[in-house]
Amino acid sequence: MTTMTMAPPAVALHGVSRVFGRGPSAVRAVDGVTLDFPRGSWTAVMGPSGSGKSTLLHCAAGLERVDAGQVLLGDTDLTVAGDAELTALRRTRIGFVFQSFNLIGALTAEQNVALPLRLAGKRPSRSAVRATLDAVGLADRARHKPRELSGGQQQRVAIARAMVTRPEVLFADEPTGALDSTAARTVLDLLRAMADAGQSIVMVTHDPGAAARADAVVFLRDGRVVDRLAGADARAVADRLAAWER
């Protein structure tokens, strides 16, 4: 336990704020959040709708500009990084998975997975790409296009695409939000296995069952961190969420 806290966090937020709009109609989507996402561990972010979960995730991943504070990925300050640097980070150190799988419809599963590597100027070997697809259980669907895959399969392709670059941190915004419980379980099993293998994961979710699979749960309300739970089961998470949603 001591070694966990001593290791530098995968992502650290210091006093991060993000305000949308101006004047009286301004929305403080993220309001002075200071938070560490530990390395090699899976953290879930929960909270009522509109509490700023997605915005927090986007800020942590360098997709959204922050109005105040600092975001550190390892020892890289994302808030001062330029576009080229952020692009390079997306190719090498950050992976994304979203609720709407955001695959490129024109490309096959295999091509979608290989895309980040090809954008980085690498020539991915077919076997490496196949191995990544195999890891998400889709080796036999390599040549299918997204529209020929089920939602759960598409999401697993998206995870394979995010993992193919072996990122330091995987960001996931409601990765099971559009899936039925069986497909969701497959995806969560996959994430659990990755976390057990040392992958840092930050995941936003509505589902207490999904959050309970993570190592820790952070609760957000009105853009602020209001609570934190570690190693809780689904019922405990649900009770806590209900308390904060009241």
């Binding site: 997709l63 080229a84 692009t87 997306r90 955001n102 895309l115 980040p116 954008l119 695409r161």
Partner: peptide
């Protein structure tokens, strides 16, 4: 989307 998965400008 291309930018999201690491495409540069």
């Amino acid at each position: 989307l291309l930018r999201l998965v690491g495409g540069s400008r």
